[in-house]
Amino acid sequence: MASLWEYANPVKFMRLSGWLMPVSALLAAGLIVTGLVWGFFFTEADYRQGASVKIIFLHVPSALMAINAWAMMLIASLIWLVRRHHVSALAAKAAAPIGATMTLIALITGAIWGQPMWGTWWEWDPRLTSFLILFLFYLGYIALWSAIEDTDTAADLTAILCLVGSVFAALSRYAALFWNQGLHQGASLSVAPGTRMDWAYKAPLYLCMAGFALLFLALVLAGTRTEIRARRARALMTRERARA
């Protein structure tokens, strides 16, 4: 029986991602466009928040993927440390800038949403603060990858940074809660405290969330493919140098 680990082989991974990437990219585009058009133009404005609430269709999915990207990097790093599959390390590397971008999108859309709601672009609220700290963790991770020349060394060191960083990111989240109880509404898809979100909002939101997840998958696959090709090019160059 075919094992999942077979796709740790770069050649097999290239073959699989060769069709999976365009498929998920297309599906992502379809879902996001449908979700956003539905959400922006075919839902009613909230009676308290007005039309500005509709930014939720970008804000929530990007925030979701910002955290999930880090979780994926953590899992990929563990796989690299335990099983030494190079594709896994390269996938973690590819996910970092995407996760950082998602974090940035979540922060920016949050600021745009917060301005009319709270009357300020930025509020040192625990959720916002945690996301800002998460963004700093992404920056550090990316910087460490780019600072080290040898790929295996970089993979090992970033993997251990990701592990330690995850613990401290979680601690920072609780520290931020401890520090300030905050203005941000609770999660769990409730728009105003006490009122659960209506299906008219939920349906396009779920479409957008699925779309962002697929978009993330497509981007990570594309990034990993680039890294594998770069690695292959380097391996070829090394062989030429060794032959000469």
């Binding site: 770069p10 295996d152 690695r231 292959r232 391996a235 060794a242």
Partner: peptide, 13 residues
């Protein structure tokens, strides 16, 4: 002897 054994990078060729 080089090639074919390129150590860790072999898998990428």
């Amino acid at each position: 002897e080089l090639p074919p054994d390129l150590g860790f990078d072999e898998a990428f060729l």
